[in-house]
Every structure is written in C-alpha cells, then in structure tokens.
Design a protein around this nucleic acid. Sequence first.
DNA 1: ATGCTCGTACGATACTCGTCGTAGTACGGC
DNA 2: GCCGTACTACGACGAGTATCGTACGAGCAT
Lengths: 119, 119
Amino acid sequence: MTTATSPRALEHPSREQISLEGVLHALSDAVRLRIVRDLAREGDALSCSYFDLPVTKSTTTHHFRVLRESGVIEQTYQGTAKLNALRKSDLDALFPGLLATVLTAAEAQADRQGVTERA
Amino acid sequence: MTTATSPRALEHPSREQISLEGVLHALSDAVRLRIVRDLAREGDALSCSYFDLPVTKSTTTHHFRVLRESGVIEQTYQGTAKLNALRKSDLDALFPGLLATVLTAAEAQADRQGVTERA
DNA sequence: ATGCTCGTACGATACTCGTCGTAGTACGGC
DNA sequence: GCCGTACTACGACGAGTATCGTACGAGCAT
C-alpha cells in the first residue's frame, strides 16, 4: 500500500516457459477443463464470477491460478473483477492445433456423456 | 492355465471408459510422455525393458500401469516379457487427432530444448 | 465514509502421486 | 530340478494437490 498499489502484478510464464507437460496437467482436471471450454466458447475474456463451478471460491481461485501458472490463461485486473482470457496465440505457436483438438475432444466427450443427463 | 492364452489378466478400460481427463493426466508426466513418444515412433509393441528410463524398475512399472489404466496403451504378456502398444485406434476414435497433436507438440518441445543438450 | 461484492491469502486436511527398496511370481533356458 | 531374467506387489515416504473455512484487501455504489 506504499508504492505498488494499483497494478497488482500477476505472475505469468513467458511463452518459452510454457511446458507441454504443464499444459496437459492443467487440462487434466475436470473443473479446469470446463473453465477452458467456457473461455473458448465465449472467445473473450471472462470474469471469475461468470463461472458457476461446483466448488467454493477458494478452490476456484486455486484452479485459475493453476491455469495461469501453466500458461493456459492470462489474467488481468479490471477493477474489482479479474478477467480471464485464453492464451490462444501462445499455445498455438508452441503446440499447433493442441488447444483446438483438446477442445473438440472435450466437446465430444461431453456429448457422449450428456445424452443421458443434460444440465 | 492351459486353455487360456493369458493366465495373468491385465485390466484394461474399454473404449467407452476412457476419459479425456485421464488421458491428459497420463500424458502430463515427462516419463510417460517419453514412453508414448517412443511407442509412437516405433509404431509397434515394445517390451518394458526396451525403454531406458531414468527411474527404477518399480517406478517404470507404475508408469506403465498408469498408461494402461488410463487407456493410452495396451499391455499383453509375451512369455516373461510384457508388450506395450499404443491404443491408437481407440484414442483416434474417441478424440480425433489428439494423439497426433500431442506427439507433434512433444517433438517440437523436445527440439526446442534439445538444441543445447543432445543425448 | 460505510458497506457490498469480488477475489486473495493463509492454514488445515485428506488424498493422490512419483519415487524407491525389497520381496515375490512367472517364464524360459541349463 | 535350478537359476536367471522380466516384471509385479507391497509398503513406505516426501511432495504435490484439491478441497474447504475464515479472514482480509481492493474497488464500486450509495
């Protein structure tokens, strides 16, 4: 509260620091995969409160942090809210087609399971 | 143990039981990703002892089991050895292009990092 | 200012995972 | 039969993770 007040800096890995293992691990959780799917569907930055996740706020923060630290999303402050955006260009540059393929696979799996129970 | 070809039955998930999260998690470990890469490069079933991994036998067994239980590989006994093969057709049917994309990404990352240290 | 909402930090807990060593089982060769 | 090779099972241990509750801070509205 002395000097660095306004921009609460969020740590993001640079493009070179993003590892495939880290990205895959970040995507290997159902909650996080759902976040990424929503992000991709909207195609725009979304606030954390946009998501209606089956976990508490603390856990939500944790998952967003995992996604950010693995390089999957970018977080920026927007007043009291925090906007989350996919790092699509970085991911596509590093691992061409990976994001799209995973997203397609996630949709396909959701369709397979969603036939019986629709939410 | 006369009629049955394989007395020691290995548990494999059926195609429907394979989950995207499970596959991504299986691939999010460096050792396992390397195994899958080797398997894909050879394009054929390989015995566990083919791989020269930087871990002990126990750990190797563990990783192969994770890969098998997630549905990424299929293991069959061949005498005293155990053959490991990618479940390429199952994975392609469930998540089209996923395996190829991840493999390509892994190669790309290996190239980026392998420029300095070549083994 | 006061309060409200959004999100964070911290601590706690229980569970999973990666790793190992040792002991054991199955198969094939001598 | 006996031994070596290939792999497994089991137990252990440290590290990481997913979860929560509670307390706190930052910004917006009144």
